[in-house]
């Protein structure tokens, strides 16, 4: 049982990183800190998917052996190469994560222009003041 837990150490680190990111998104009040937490969360999920594709032993990256012209070329066993499917999926996930980060940073600059602060509690106080002022009139 202990051996089984220790052999999957990548997955434990993935859970730890995911919880660090979740804490930063929920517990921190600065909006840039929340965004950093979101980045850590996304990379932890990519770490999980890449860890699935890893095989024990001497598995290699190329899936065919030989020179590519028919000499010495033969179909090799599945256990001899790393699973390329999670890698390709996570390639897309990295690009999507950088796109969401860019949109979030643009929104953040607009928030700073309007409220002149990036702290969540200060923004909430300003919004509350503005709404109470509106109801008084």
């Amino acid at each position: 049982m202990l051996e089984y837990i220790l052999a999957k150490y990548n997955f434990w680190i993935y859970v730890i990183l995911m919880m660090i990111g979740l804490y930063a998104m929920m517990g921190k009040r600065n909006l840039v800190k929340k965004l950093i937490g979101m980045n850590i969360f996304q990379t932890s999920i990519i770490l999980f998917f890449v860890s699935i594709g890893v095989k024990a032993g001497d598995a290699t990256v190329p899936i065919l052996k030989g020179d590519g012209h028919g000499h010495g070329e033969h179909l090799i066993q599945v256990a001899d190469y790393l699973n390329p499917l999670p890698h390709v999926l996570m390639l897309t996930a990295i690009v999507v994560s950088i796109a969401t980060t860019g949109v979030a940073l643009a929104t953040l600059i607009l928030i700073y222009k309007r409220y002149n602060t990036l702290e969540e509690d200060e923004i909430m106080a300003i919004r509350k003041d503005a709404s109470s002022y509106k109801t008084q009139r």
């Binding site: 840039v32 990256v61 390639l91 690009v95 980060t101």
Partner: peptide
Amino acid sequence: GAVDVAFTEASVGAGIGTVLFIAAVNKT
């Protein structure tokens, strides 16, 4: 062994991501 993911992360994630973050922090 995920070489393609590694160089995408190095160029897109670490490169462009850090540049975007620094630009946003400079503006705010």
